[in-house]
Simulated assay, not measured.
Amino acid sequence: MKGSAVIVGAGIGGLATAVGLRRAGWEVTVLERWPEIRPEGTALGMRPAAQSALDRLGLGAELRRRTVPYRSAQILTPDGRRLADLPLERIERKEGRPVLMLSRVSLMEMLLDAAGAATVRTAADITDPAALRSRYDLVVGADGLRSTVRRAFFDTTARPRYTGIVAWRGVAAFEPPVHGETWGAGQVFGVTPQEPGVTNWYAAVATPEGHRESLDALRARFAGWHTAVTRALAEADEKNVLRHEIHDLRPRLRSFAGGNAVLVGDAAHAMTPSLGQGACQALLDADTLTTCLREAGDVASALRRYDASRRRPAQRVVTMSRLMTRLAGHHLQGPRNLLLRLLDA
């Protein structure tokens, strides 16, 4: 089946959907509200399932060219003692390939190139979402946590809820002796590979909503932690550090599809970053949606199949990620089997 599609939002989920639909022969328009697309962010972990999705979108070779494998990592205490291993080796044994790390900027560049510059219209303010439904065969809401498409066509009780956590992200020009996460009361610090000689770091700290603090205040929070943490923060530059209040979407949506409208990515299932699964789930949404549309005889049956395939698995990851945020934020160490199941989600 082929037709015309409008995708609202030019993030990972929206651009990946554009790539898939164009490969399937659809006429695609992407509407982005910002005046220009300026990718930002640090490293993303591409799980094997997300790698397979990118393979099917024709981007697997480029993904592997840009990435480094992530094969070993630990959870540590603030003084550097080991609590547990992250299940990266188990994931590689089970799936036959390792988790791959790349920057969000690189992923966005790949998707933009594959989607085609002419497909994307920037500075597009959606004032009448209903008009899109009559103009296009398919309307894809890929417009994030505060989705206009979701508010217009789906359950309005679902809305962003602040998790009590602020995430900081940056990069450092050194490679630590051990990658992984360090857990303390009310705060977590992580270091992962990004590319040779460059380390991605992130900090998640319990913070009242609306409260802003400086990078120096963040350094003070982690004073006395082991060397990889203090060195990464010492080298950080305020101008190049990202800070975001973390929200997820609650209550869960009863459907990701309605009529000829469908949701992907954060618009459907915004989650905390504790499992590092947001980008992966958006790619799985895009791949599944485009597969369903390619194989179905009509839009309605394709969207029903997409909803049946993706809603419960994605919402399960949202729930596990929320639980992981609570575990890490309260420095709970067990039960160990639960912790490892969450990390392996």
Rank of each mutant, 00 (worst) to 15 (best):
G3S: 11
A5C: 09
V8K: 02
G9N: 06
G11I: 03
G13M: 10
G14W: 02
L15A: 10
G20S: 13
R22E: 11
T29I: 06
T29L: 15
L31F: 14
E32R: 05
W34S: 11
E36P: 00
I37R: 11
G41Q: 00
M46Y: 03
G58F: 14
G60L: 08
P69E: 09
Y70K: 00
Y70Q: 00
A73Y: 08
G80P: 02
R82N: 10
A84L: 14
D85S: 15
E92C: 02
E92S: 08
R93L: 13
K94H: 12
P98S: 09
M101F: 01
A114E: 09
A114Q: 08
A117C: 04
A117V: 10
A123T: 07
D125L: 14
I126Q: 04
D128A: 15
D128W: 11
R133W: 10
R133H: 06
R135A: 14
D137N: 11
L138N: 02
D143W: 12
L145A: 09
L145E: 08
A152Q: 04
F153Y: 07
T156K: 13
T163M: 05
V166P: 03
V166A: 08
T182W: 01
A185Q: 14
A185Y: 10
G186T: 08
T192F: 06
P193F: 00
E195F: 00
E195T: 00
P196L: 08
G197F: 01
G197D: 09
T199W: 00
T199Q: 01
T199H: 00
W201Q: 01
T207H: 02
E209D: 13
H211D: 13
E213P: 01
S214R: 12
D216V: 05
R221E: 09
F222L: 06
A228E: 12
A232E: 00
K239H: 15
N240E: 15
L242S: 12
I246E: 03
R250Y: 12
P251E: 11
P251M: 14
L253P: 06
R254S: 15
S255L: 04
F256S: 05
F256Y: 12
F256W: 04
G259M: 08
N260D: 10
V262T: 06
V264N: 02
D266P: 09
A267E: 02
A267V: 02
A267F: 04
T272V: 11
S274L: 06
Q277C: 07
A282Q: 03
D285L: 06
T288R: 07
V299T: 11
R304S: 13
A308R: 15
R310H: 05
R310T: 10
P313C: 12
Q315Y: 10
V317L: 07
L323A: 12
L323C: 06
M324E: 04
T325Q: 15
L327T: 05
G329Y: 01
G334T: 12
N337C: 05
L338A: 11
L340Q: 15
A345R: 09
